[in-house]
């Protein structure tokens, strides 16, 4: 930036204007909109998140069974693991 001085002055004015605007409109409405957006985003994510882990776990179990000819033991073993991984996904998405 070759016109750094102008830029700094502009930033200062912008800051002042933003402060003034903030005083005029309370932040709550904006915050509410933000949390609603987050809620919709979460709702869109959560359902699939759990099923995906289950699918991956069962596919891995099925593959291991195919490899070691142990049908259906790995698949049965992987179902609870996939369930827990799904819950782990949910917890991570929430946090």
């Amino acid at each position: 930036m070759k016109d750094g001085r102008d830029n700094a002055a502009f930033e200062a004015r912008l800051e002042a204007a933003e402060q003034a605007a903030k005083a005029e409109r309370p932040e709550t409405a904006q915050k509410q909109a933000g949390s609603a957006q987050r809620a919709i985003e979460l709702a869109m994510r959560l359902g699939v998140e759990m099923v995906a882990a289950m699918v991956i776990a069962v596919v891995i179990g099925w593959g291991l069974d195919k490899l070691f000819h142990t049908k259906p033991w790995f698949m049965i073993l992987m179902v609870p693991v996939g369930l827990v991984a799904g819950v782990r996904n949910l917890l991570r998405a929430m946090g």
Partner: peptide
């Protein structure tokens, strides 16, 4: 953890 990680592209 690994399954949770691998499930990412699926979800």
């Amino acid at each position: 953890e690994i399954i949770s990680y691998l499930s990412r592209p699926v979800s």
